[in-house]
Each structure stands twice: as structure tokens, then as C-alpha cells.
Design a protein around this nucleic acid. Structure first.
Length: 544
RNA sequence: GGCCCGUUCGUCUAGGGGUUAGGACGUCAGAUUUUCAUUCUGGUAGCAGGGGUUCGAUUCCCCUACGGGCUACCA
């Protein structure tokens, strides 16, 4: 085994090769739900692929059979779909580089492990996990750390130290063995990362990683490099937690003789917890007070449900926007992007180097921005979907679209209500608390408002106002416009020199039960004269 | 512990050898509104520390500190 001079890594400096098409992959392992950091990695891959008219691949890395979680694969695909991250090649989509699930590629890895064994870049290791654990403990007791490396391998049970006959005998005896990478001694590996620039590591600090496990499955490292090569991946965009294994991967490309087509690497900074200790992890679940998952995850083992952004009421566009701006910006002050705009503006060079703490408050602000951007009709659809049972919205039997199932009068009314309250809502679910009084009459009245605004003569004043509305009773509910209500009532207040603030606030109290909500006349116009009179009468009766 | 990566307002960030260090979220104050909210205006707050290099460093280099990642027959 010989090593060429370090110069052979210099090709890594090359910029994006225009001839080679961009092919990127998102390669999660189905050990549970994807969390938002994983989704962001997928998103950056997707944006990069679309930006360069490339191909986005979803590869499932399930080489650890012990950690397989049922439903995780489906969860991953559903999450990406919700985010609008379209996969070009994958399990569902197919493609000529399949299969796209590593457990279905099991046979492929064996031959590559053999290739390394033959060329001397790998060796058999017969040390059992128990033996190794014991050695680790022993080292620990001396306050040292054991690593299976260029030095320690010389005195362990492997095909480097054992006689060839003995190795052959062991192989045929059926004892467990693993295949380890034979790390060269004392060589400087120089790597290029698109985000971090040059990274150097000496092989003396690296260990001999297991490539092929005793269960005949490859480890992540082998499978990953082999698949990226076979699938002609041009850029590996992954989380920073992988940076420490980059030297190994680079060496593997070298060992296989694939350096000429080795992908370029970009290691994304991590998303950190808001309180600032450690990266965001799946295990955070709902502990942090905000979802860490894109969509709800039902833990099959405990039956616990962890909340997702989708169910928490986030718009998908908002969620994607939030993720995109965590660690990336285009250098301008722009913060609200459609996915197409993200694709246009995206570049790996503008991804930052340092980890970002997630700010749940700003996430809400983003959703509010999208609330403002959306049409009233769109929000009305969502609102009816969420609150349908409360609305008594006279749902018609037929109609494929939700909108067609609602009486037109009611639909128009809801759209109008949305237009009045959407700017005060962050989520669709907030709309009910801002607008419930359009659908139900209040039954209680805020004491503080009564104390401040009510006076003994108020019932009389209100009586006058209701008589003002009486002539319009026979008309359709919404026949009296906002302006007409205003002219009528304000005119009355002014003509009788009444206290504007008191009367208006009391009117609001009668209609809403407290001192919140849109303009009083807006509310009246939507309620109609009949309901307004009814609510005033009821309030007067209740308050006295 | 070892190896690697990082460090600009509380948070996300722009910037870059000479800037009043810019924006956004949050927060505070004022304005508007018949209420609440929205909105608008304004304020608050930052280059981790120490050495170099330089006429001049927040910007380039080194060290320290701090933060983060990795350190499995997990990915």
C-alpha cells in the first residue's frame, strides 16, 4: 500500500464542474422522525439541486438493523412532501441508480469490502465487542482513551498480526469478524469544504473504522461512499456532525481509486437549542416549548405523540422560509421568500459557518407574515377546515371543494371576517379567538369595562339606539352597511351630546362581551340589525 | 481527555483594514385608533479577551477563553 503525495488531493480545489451534472442526495436513517435540522439539510440539498437544474435523490440509510423504527421511512417522505421538497429519485420515484434503500443494496457492499481487502486498504479484525469493551475500560481506568488505530492494531487480533493460516482458519470457523479500514500512518490529509475552506487532519489522529460489520452489513461509512460513487453524487451536503468523518471518507475514495469523481463536500452548521446548550435533537421532543418535528410523530413504542409544525398551525411556506434563513442569507435584507425565490437566491457559498440557535418567537412572526400574504379565501378554507363543527356553516352535502360545500352567503361572510381579523393572528387557530363573537353571542360581560363605562342611564341610551335600528329589521341580515350603521349611530350620539367613548365601548361590550375586536361598526355590519338588537337587549337584561 | 469546527446587539444576521458597525425578531417609549390587536415612528443593545502585522484593526495572523461537533460492529 503506497500513498501518493498530498498533492493528489489538490483536485478537490476545483470549482463546480460544469460538465458533470449536479446530483445531490438527502440520506436520512429511518431511526425515528426527522427533526427540523434534518429537514433543513434536505431543503438545502433541494434548493441547490433546483438551482443547478440537478437531481434530488432520497436514499434511506438503514444499515443499522437494530435501530430501525417502523413508520419512520413513511414519516420522512411525508414530511418532505409537506415541505414541498420534491424527490427526483428514490424509493417511491424510482430511478436508474436504485435501489434507494441501503438494506436492499446489501450485496453490493460486500464486493467493495472485498476489493479493499484485496488491495490492502482493509483488514479482518477478530476482536470481539466484549474484548474491545474490556480494553476500553482498562484504558479508562488509566484515564486514557482507547482507539483501534495505526498503533494499537499492531497488538490486536487481526489479519495484520495473525499468521495467514490462522486468519484463514478463523474465517472458515464461523467466528465473528469485522472488516476495518487500514488507515495509513502519519499522513496529512488536506480536504476542501465549500463552506469551511481547507481542513487538514493527520491520519495519526484517526482510527481504523469498521467498514463491514459482523452481521454482514456495511457501516455508514462504507455504504455512504460506495453509494455516493455509484449514484454519481456530485455534492455531498450534510450536517457538521459529519465533518470528523470526512478524512475517512476522502481516504476511502482514494482507496477505491475514485478521487477523480469524488463529490464536493459542504458541511452545514448545526441548529442549536434556544437556551444554548447543544444541538437540537429528536429527543427534545416537545420539551422546549415548540415543535422540533415537521409533522406530528406518533412514537410506536410509547404511543406518545410529538407535535409537528404542520399540526401546530404553521404554513408550509413559512416553515420552509424559517429553515432556509437558519444559517443562510443572500446578503440582502430580504427575509420573506417563496420557494422559487429561495431557489434563485440560494448558494452554498453564502451558508454561514457557525451554529444557529432557533428562535421560536421569530418563527411565529414568520407565520404571521405569511398570514398577511395569503388571500382571505385561502385562510377561510383553512379556518372552516379547522373550526367547521363550531361554525354551523350549513355544510351542503355535495361539492368537492370545501368552498362549494358552504352556503355562499356564509362563505362570503367568513371571508369578510377573515379580512378583519387576520392581521391580528399568527396562526389560523388564533382566528377563532379573534372572531368567535361573529358566530356566537357573548354570555358574560367584562366586569372591568362595566365598572369603567356603565352608568344608570345606559339602558335608556341603548334603548334609543335599538329603536334607531328597528326600521331595518325586516331586511336581510347584512343589508345595513358599515357606513350606514356609522352614520346612524354616530349621528345619534353627536346629536344628543352623548359621551362617544362610553357609548361606543358599551356597544362593543354588548356585542362582544369585552373590549376587544375590530371596529364596532364592522361588527354590526356583519351581525346585522336583528342580531345587534338582540345582543343589546340581552346585555341590558344581564347587566341591569 | 484527544481531534475537528466555530465566535458581530438577548436571538437570527449584514459588513469588512479607515463605517455614526446596517437590517430583522424580541423588548421599551411615543403616535394613531371608540377597545384590543395591527400599523407607523423612535429608543435600547454587539465586534469574547490578549498579543502581533499596520499610519490605522471589529476586519489579517497567533495565543487564550468560551461554545459546538465527533470520539460505537449508530447514523
Amino acid at each position: 500500500m503506497r500513498l501518493a503525495p498530498c498533492a493528489f488531493f489538490s483536485h478537490l480545489c476545483k470549482k463546480i464542474n460544469p460538465i458533470m451534472s449536479v446530483r445531490v442526495r438527502f440520506a436520512p436513517s429511518p431511526t425515528g422522525p426527522l427533526h427540523m435540522g434534518g429537514v433543513r439539510t434536505a431543503l438545502f440539498n433541494y434548493l441547490f439541486a433546483r438551482k443547478h437544474q440537478g437531481t434530488m435523490i432520497l436514499r434511506i440509510e438503514d444499515t443499522d438493523q437494530g435501530r430501525f423504527v417502523p413508520g419512520a421511512e413513511e414519516y420522512i417522505m411525508e414530511s418532505l412532501e409537506w415541505c414541498g421538497i420534491q424527490i427526483d429519485e428514490g424509493i417511491k420515484e424510482g430511478g436508474k441508480f436504485g435501489p434507494y434503500r441501503q438494506s436492499d443494496r446489501k450485496l453490493i457492499y460486500k464486493q467493495y469490502a472485498d476489493q479493499l481487502l484485496e488491495s490492502g486498504w482493509a483488514y479482518y479484525s477478530f476482536d470481539s465487542s466484549e474484548d474491545l469493551d474490556a480494553i476500553r475500560k482498562e484504558y479508562e481506568s488509566r484515564k486514557e482513551t482507547f482507539s483501534y488505530d495505526t498503533q494499537t492494531r499492531k497488538s490486536l487480533r487481526n489479519s495484520l498480526t495473525l499468521a495467514p493460516d490462522e486468519v484463514k482458519r478463523l474465517l472458515h470457523s464461523g467466528v465473528h469478524f469485522v472488516v476495518r479500514f487500514r488507515m495509513p500512518e502519519n499522513h496529512e490529509i488536506v480536504m476542501q469544504d465549500i463552506i469551511r475552506g481547507e481542513v487538514r487532519v493527520n491520519t495519526a489522529t484517526l482510527d481504523d473504522k469498521v467498514l463491514f460489520k459482523s452481521d454482514r452489513m456495511p457501516t455508514y461509512h462504507l455504504a455512504n461512499v460506495v453509494d455516493d460513487h455509484l449514484m454519481e453524487i456530485s455534492h455531498v451536503i450534510r450536517g457538521e456532525e459529519w465533518l470528523p468523518s470526512l478524512p475517512l471518507h476522502v481516504m476511502l475514495y482514494k482507496a477505491f481509486g475514485w478521487t477523480d469523481t469524488m463529490p464536493q463536500f459542504a458541511h452545514l452548521p448545526l441548529i442549536l437549542k434556544p437556551n444554548g446548550n447543544g444541538k437540537l435533537s429528536k429527543r427534545d421532543g416537545d420539551k422546549l416549548g415548540f415543535p422540533v418535528f415537521p409533522i406530528n410523530w406518533n412514537n410506536p413504542e410509547t404511543n406518545e405523540i410529538y407535535s409537528g409544525y404542520r399540526e401546530a398551525g404553521y404554513f408550509r411556506e413559512a416553515f420552509v422560509n424559517i429553515l432556509a434563513l437558519l444559517g443562510w442569507n443572500d446578503g440582502t435584507d430580504k427575509e420573506i421568500y417563496t420557494t422559487d425565490e429561495l431557489i434563485q437566491a440560494f448558494s452554498l457559498e453564502r451558508v454561514g459557518k457557525s451554529g444557529s440557535r432557533f428562535d421560536p418567537e421569530k418563527a411565529k412572526w414568520f407565520n404571521h407574515q405569511y398570514m398577511l400574504l395569503k388571500s382571505n379565501e385561502e385562510i377561510a378554507e383553512e379556518f372552516i377546515k379547522a373550526q367547521g363543527s363550531r361554525l354551523k356553516a350549513q355544510v351542503k352535502a355535495q361539492g368537492s371543494r370545501l368552498r362549494d360545500q358552504v352556503e355562499e352567503v356564509e362563505w362570503n361572510r367568513i371571508v369578510k371576517i377573515i379580512s378583519l381579523v387576520k392581521e391580528r393572528a399568527e396562526f389560523v387557530k388564533d382566528i377563532w379567538s379573534q372572531a368567535w363573537f361573529f358566530f356566537e353571542a357573548p354570555t358574560t360581560y367584562d366586569e372591568a369595562v362595566i365598572k369603567k363605562r356603565w352608568s344608570p342611564e345606559m339602558p335608556l341610551i341603548l334603548k334609543d339606539i335599538t329603536s334607531l335600528l328597528l326600521p331595518y329589521l325586516s331586511l336581510a341580515p347584512c343589508a345595513l352597511s358599515l357606513g350606514e350603521f356609522e352614520t346612524l349611530i354616530k349621528g345619534h350620539i353627536v346629536a344628543n351630546s352623548l359621551n362617544m367613548g362610553n357609548v361606543m365601548n358599551i356597544l362593543r361590550l354588548c356585542l362582544v362581551g369585552s373590549s376587544v375586536g375590530p371596529g364596532v361598526f364592522d361588527i354590526m355590519a356583519l351581525l346585522g340589525p336583528k342580531e345587534v338588537i338582540a345582543r343589546i337587549d340581552r346585555a341590558v337584561q344581564t347587566i341591569g
